[in-house]
């Protein structure tokens, strides 16, 4: 496997609107990197340019330092798993997996040996004579994976590979993909719109917004230190407090309304403060710092916890409380926003 580098990639279909603007990132050998974003953010376009399926408008794609931008798709030696799996309907499982090897003109016995190995690795040995239409979604997914891996590709590209599976199978398959990736030390670029899925399996996550990279970091860093409001919203931060330069008192204190909010992280350039709903405390015994009162407007039962919509003088808040005794609408509560969980965001 190899490392991938993307430099200043840009794409425009009509010459006017740019769907990709200046995309640069690198994937190291043996890493699994996810591209995360809502539909239409350009993540699939990025993947398809790297695959060579569509031409770029500007920029380069490098594999092991070599510019492959002008190499046609069929000479790139990549593997790709499509959202629809895109198995060849007129070939059985064996022939589907063997196709890439036949294109590389390997002799018959070598093909047979390699395909048999690959089918065993992916647990498909029993199904080699079946046709795609006879397989379940999970099985088709495995065939698609086997077909992509059999040629020892330099890079494995996956375009929303799990989104057509049901929830349970999705969890199982993502573990299998991660295990296989670790075992074979594959370099993988994985496109998804599912935040949980991508945090669970990725070494690094690249969050895209409207054709740009918003944040590129490890899942842990992104989770604890979202760079922008957009990223924060995407990964489950529900509460945003807008601040202006005039609100700033010093590096760690911001005055919002009558309340002074204390942050652990320095707050210069902060435009927004954010906190996850499960990090806000209600009616804490020692409610001195970062505390203010609010009224419960409505409630939602989540199983393990309750989620409350609370109205306060400095805005509306979503709060998740793990306490099993529920609070009722109209109740007055004190909210406490712990300083270490309150993140200042610059965008």
């Amino acid at each position: 496997m190899a490392n991938l580098e993307v430099q200043n990639l840009a794409k425009s279909y009509d010459g006017k609107t740019k769907v990709l603007k200046d995309i640069s990132f690198a994937v190291n050998n043996g890493e699994l990197v996810s591209i995360l974003g809502p539909s239409g953010c350009g993540k699939t376009t990025t993947l398809r340019i790297i695959a060579g399926l569509i031409p770029e408008t500007a920029g380069q794609v490098l594999v092991n330092g070599k510019d492959i931008t002008k190499v046609p798709v069929y000479k790139r030696n990549f593997g790709m798993v499509f959202q629809s799996y895109a198995l060849f309907p007129h070939m059985n499982v064996f022939d589907n997996v063997a196709f890439g090897l036949k294109m590389r003109k390997l002799d018959k016995s070598a093909i047979k040996k390699r395909v048999t190995e690959m089918l065993a690795t992916t647990g498909l040995s029993q199904l080699s004579k079946q046709f795609p239409a006879q397989l379940s979604g999970g099985q088709q997914q495995r065939v698609s994976l086997a077909r992509a891996l059999v040629t020892n590709p330099e890079l494995l590209l996956m375009d929303e590979p799990l989104s057509n599976l049901d929830a349970k199978l999705r969890l199982k398959m993502r573990e299998e993909i991660r295990d296989l990736q670790q075992k074979l030390k594959m370099t993988v670029l994985f496109v998804t719109h599912d935040q949980q899925e991508c945090f669970a399996i990725s070494d690094k996550v690249l969050i895209m917004k409207q054709g740009r990279i918003d944040q590129f970091d490890t899942p842990q860093n992104i989770f604890h230190h979202p760079r922008t409001e957009y990223v924060a919203r995407f990964i489950g931060y529900d509460n945003f407090i807008t601040v202006t330069a005039a609100n700033r008192q010093d590096e760690h204190h911001i005055k919002v309304g009558e309340t002074v909010l204390n942050t652990v992280e320095p707050n210069q350039d902060a435009k927004v403060l954010t906190i996850r709903p499960e990090n806000i405390h209600l009616n804490l015994a020692d409610a001195s710092e970062n505390s203010f009162t609010g009224t419960i407007m409505s409630r939602e039962y989540l199983g393990q916890s309750f989620k409350y919509a609370i109205h306060s003088a400095i805005g509306d808040f979503q709060v998740e409380e793990a306490r099993q005794k529920m609070r009722s609408s109209g109740e007055e509560v004190t909210l406490t926003l712990p300083a270490k969980h309150l993140h200042p965001l610059s965008e």
């Binding site: 798709v73 790709m80 629809s84 309907p89 196709f99």
Partner: peptide, 27 residues
Amino acid sequence: MDSHIEEAGWICGCSRKKGFFLIVLPN
């Protein structure tokens, strides 16, 4: 016909012309 099927063929190392005969026509 899912156009990704043809693309999957290219990714597997099949040129466009070959893919027309090996993948598009049979389907």
